[in-house]
Design a protein around this nucleic acid. Structure first.
Lengths: 121, 121
DNA sequence: GTAGAAGCTAACATTGATGTCAAGTTCAAG
DNA sequence: CTTGAACTTGACATCAATGTTAGCTTCTAC
């Protein structure tokens, strides 16, 4: 599919998709005229890329990580190096702390929202 | 306490603490010489501010939110307006989506880490 | 072949919290 | 009083993903 459809189907801007390709996170064929042709599988991949961005990973690390993920259509095409594994373990710890913080913040918002709705009966 | 101690005890840089005060997130007395004097309670508050930042709230929204939180030492000093409540509900939904994404990403990292460690037995 | 939608590259802007540096002031202890 | 640590304000820099614009090209359908 071309970039417009991918953008529509993932909710990610064309600008970002081009950026992802530039960073090596997406691979696209090119038509003779030079337009990008993404595989169907790109939809899932974009969604996972977004999740990893949301988790605070930088594009460089995501680029290293992606080949080691098992895709919908098969096993991973690479195994993480020990160095990468160490990085990922650190990221995982960071994500765990982040989740804790998010849960706490969610609780704070809950309190404030509940206090207000209770105040107004 | 002065800013250095607060920075040490919260792990937040002095730069950020000054920024928080400027944004109305922290209130500090001043010594006759003009130095900030933070109350003991600022430690908890800074930690909660950091959590809210981590949750993706902007300083402006946090500033609105803070007076409505119940502090360690008492009830809330304000009740959220309906407008603010609507905002907070939206933020809460965003946080929920964010947690979901984080959990997914954590799973991806787990897979890659496990695949590597298993590969090396 | 032509019109309009969709795509391309490239460059510049934005955002928002935080880092950093400079030049000067205050504080605490001898 | 003096010295050094701690503090002040202000300005400028950074980061990384994304927005925006401009000028040009390709594709699709008639």
């Amino acid at each position: 599919m071309r970039i417009g459809e991918l953008a529509r189907r993932t909710g990610v801007s064309e600008r970002s998709l081009r950026y992802y390709e530039q960073q090596g996170l997406l691979v696209a064929e090119r038509t003779p005229g030079g337009q990008r042709e993404f595989p169907e599988q790109a939809v899932d991949r974009v969604i996972r890329i977004q999740e990893l961005f949301a988790a605070g990973l930088h594009s460089k690390k995501i680029a290293q990580l992606l080949p080691c993920m098992r895709d919908a259509d098969g096993g991973p095409s690479a195994i993480a190096t020990p160095r990468l594994v160490a990085d990922l373990v650190a990221e995982r710890e960071r994500i765990d702390r982040m989740i804790t913080e998010l849960v706490n913040s969610r609780g704070v918002l809950d309190d404030v929202i509940n206090a207000a709705s209770q105040d107004r009966g």
